[in-house]
Amino acid sequence: MSAYHPDDMTLMNYAAGSCSIPESLAVAMHLCFCHDCRQHVKNLNHLGGALLETIKPASTDDEAFETLMSSLEPHDHSAPVKVKMEPTPNDRAIQHFTNPLLRYLPTSLADLPWQRQTKEISKFDLTSLVNVKGFQVALQKISAGAKVPKHTHKGFEYTVILSGGYSDELGVYHEGDFIARDASHKHSPTALQNEDCICLTVLNAPLKFTGWYRVLNPFMAWN
């Protein structure tokens, strides 16, 4: 069972359908592994339904109805669509629950055309497939025992471990764990020694390397 989970506010936003698609994807992937969080989201959905049943419908005349319908129309078509990510049929790579990554992956995790970033770190970029402005979404593969350079974040980063695990200055993480990091954290993830670590990462701003690796920061800007 997962040891690290989304906080209550994140799960509430997910249940309410108010997370962005990339955020929802990260939470949904964690739910693939975590029975407790699935149950928590289920309870939140039931609670929301019960609260709706207690609200007395307001009577509306024609003018009020037009005003209501106008308020429901999106005014900024460039803004990220806020939807709850529904899982799709189960993939052999994720045995615990349904796998929402299936809608984005052209093949299994093992057969992906990984893009090598360093000798020991590879990436499969999902950003253009998820297609929500202001986010970077990717799968990262870190070879067993390899270390990611120490960095912090200009925004937030959600990481969900799909296989293997890694450690950093704040803990040790295994399959299914949901790790949230922001500008208050500095860390250097190191894959566990026994197998490669594959994880989903969602960022709303670029990484910021520290130490001598900071010379790479100008190359981290997003287009």
Rank of each mutant, 00 (worst) to 15 (best):
G171W: 14
K154H: 15
V160C: 03
V172R: 14
Q136T: 04
V130K: 07
S163G: 09
A146T: 03
Y158F: 12
K141I: 06
L170V: 10
L129A: 12
L129H: 11
L170I: 04
E157R: 13
K147S: 13
V132P: 08
G165H: 00
L129W: 04
T159W: 05
V130M: 07
H151L: 01
S143P: 02
A146H: 10
G145Y: 05
L162A: 01
V137C: 13
K147F: 03
L162M: 03
Y173C: 02
H153N: 06
G171Q: 09
S167C: 11
A146S: 14
K147E: 07
K154L: 10
A138S: 06
T159Q: 05
V172M: 08
A146I: 03
Q136A: 15
K147M: 12
V137E: 04
S143C: 03
I142K: 14
G165V: 00
N131A: 08
V130D: 08
D168G: 10
V160P: 00
E169R: 13
Y166P: 01
V160G: 02
H151V: 04
T152K: 15
E169I: 09
H153L: 05
Q136L: 12
A146C: 05
K147Y: 01
F156M: 07
V172L: 13
F135Q: 11
K154M: 07
Y158M: 11
Q136E: 09
G145H: 08
N131S: 12
Q136S: 13
N131H: 11
N131T: 09
V132G: 14
G155V: 04
G164A: 01
F156R: 13
L170W: 14
H174P: 00
Y158V: 00
K150Q: 04
S143A: 09
H153F: 07
E157P: 00
P149Y: 04
Q136K: 12
T159D: 06
D168H: 09
T152W: 15
G171C: 08
Y158Q: 06
K150H: 03
K141V: 02
K154A: 09
A146Y: 10
A138C: 08
V137P: 06
L139T: 00
I161H: 02
H153V: 06
Y173D: 02
N131G: 05
V132R: 15
A146N: 11
Y158D: 03
N131I: 13
S143T: 11
Q140W: 06
K141H: 06
P149E: 01
V137Y: 09
A146R: 15
